[in-house]
Amino acid sequence: MEIVMSAVIGLIFAVAIYLMLSRNIIRVLIGTLMLSHSVHLILLTMSGLQRGAPPLLFLEAGAYSDPLPQALILTAIVINFGVTAFVSVLVYRTYKEHKTADLYDLRGAKDE
């Protein structure tokens, strides 16, 4: 399972990078979002999938899945939400200011 998961994660990562290389700022935004998805999945996969019960102690299972990566991912998801939201506002503001969503047009003057 982990091997298949890794391959899928690699695919998500590749598409995320590809999107970030686009001209359109919206695609870049979606690319960053996909990038974070793949990172969360890596963290989950690295710790081994489907081992033991959910990390809830009242279940009184013999083995629990590792709570630490989950705590890490939870933090990552929330931070990522902050970053995505920030970038969204940045994209919005950029468009309002420059009236273009094309990154080639957004580049600075040559002599800067």
């Binding site: 990562f13 590809y18 290389l21 890596i42 690295m46 081994g48």
Partner: peptide, 25 residues
């Protein structure tokens, strides 16, 4: 070039993820 760059990045991530899992085991 974009496709090659993105593809190699994806390949790297997949390999690292697999290796990390194997190493842990």
């Amino acid at each position: 070039i974009n496709i090659v760059v993105a593809g190699s990045a994806g390949l790297m991530v997949a390999l690292v993820s697999m290796s990390a899992f194997t190493y842990g085991q």
